[in-house]
């Protein structure tokens, strides 16, 4: 507590930096994953290769990925852009499968009804398919949000500032309180963004709001990848 009270400015700055690095990849990966996922859903032949490729991208550990990004994209190693690109790649890798499955799960009869009542393909996507795929996408996005916030901290070991800096700095200087502060704030920021996703989801998809009385137990969703965390 003593350490925190003497370093509130630093902690506040790092938290803001952390948010600046976390939010863009979450949003970018959502947009890209919807596009790629929809393509994979519509073009059957693309589905297998796209899902395999994203699955493999997800398997690459974060630290090596941070180091390889500059080679491919020409960004400086110790920069926010490197971090944002890397985390977007993870986000997309995690979300594309959810997105393809989400579009695939939209009932065929709904699809045909939409055509029958005269939706254009463009309108059908925005007004029928995307809203119906929404809940599954949201579930995926929540995993991406939490894991992105956690992954940002890894950048600290190569010198990208974030709440992770509290880990490296605290470790080098032997200040336990500093590391704890970082851990707790990282968890809080993750929780904050997760909650933001949930509320945005309820706002945009009012039909998924929990009904006042339900006695059915919520189905236990176990994401295909149960690891998530910093890789």
């Amino acid at each position: 507590m003593n350490w925190l009270s003497q370093n509130t400015d630093l902690v506040f700055d790092l938290t803001l930096t952390h948010l600046r690095l976390s939010i863009p990849p979450i949003l970018l990966s959502l947009v890209l994953a919807i596009a790629i996922g929809y393509l994979a859903h519509r073009q059957r032949f693309a589905r297998g290769p796209v899902l395999t490729l994203t699955g493999l991208l997800y398997a690459v550990p974060s630290l090596p990925l941070f180091i390889m990004i500059p080679v491919v994209f020409g960004t400086p190693l110790r920069s926010g852009s490197t971090m944002i690109i890397a985390l977007t790649i993870y986000g997309v890798a995690l979300l594309v499968r959810s997105a393809a499955d989400a579009f695939g799960s939209v009932d065929r009869s709904v699809h045909e009804t939409a055509n029958a009542v005269g939706f254009s393909p463009w309108a059908r996507f925005w007004r029928v398919e995307l809203p119906l795929a929404g809940p599954v996408l949201l579930a995926g996005l929540r995993v991406v949000a939490v894991s992105t916030v956690s992954l940002v901290t890894v950048g600290a070991v190569i010198g990208i500032q974030s709440l992770g800096t509290l880990f490296t700095d605290g470790f080098q200087r032997g200040i336990q309180a500093e590391i704890f502060t970082g851990v707790i704030l990282t968890i809080l920021v993750g929780y904050l963004l997760d909650t933001a996703c949930v509320w945005t989801g309820r706002l945009l998809m009012p039909w998924t709001r929990p009904r006042p009385r339900t006695n059915s137990r919520a189905p236990l969703h176990v994401p295909a990848d149960v690891a998530g965390g910093a890789r």
């Binding site: 894991s147 956690s150 901290t153 890894v154 992770g164 970082g182 965390g229 910093a230």
Partner: peptide
């Protein structure tokens, strides 16, 4: 556990 940053741990 998933929300704990690994580097912190």
């Amino acid at each position: 556990v998933r929300s704990i940053p690994t580097l912190g741990l």
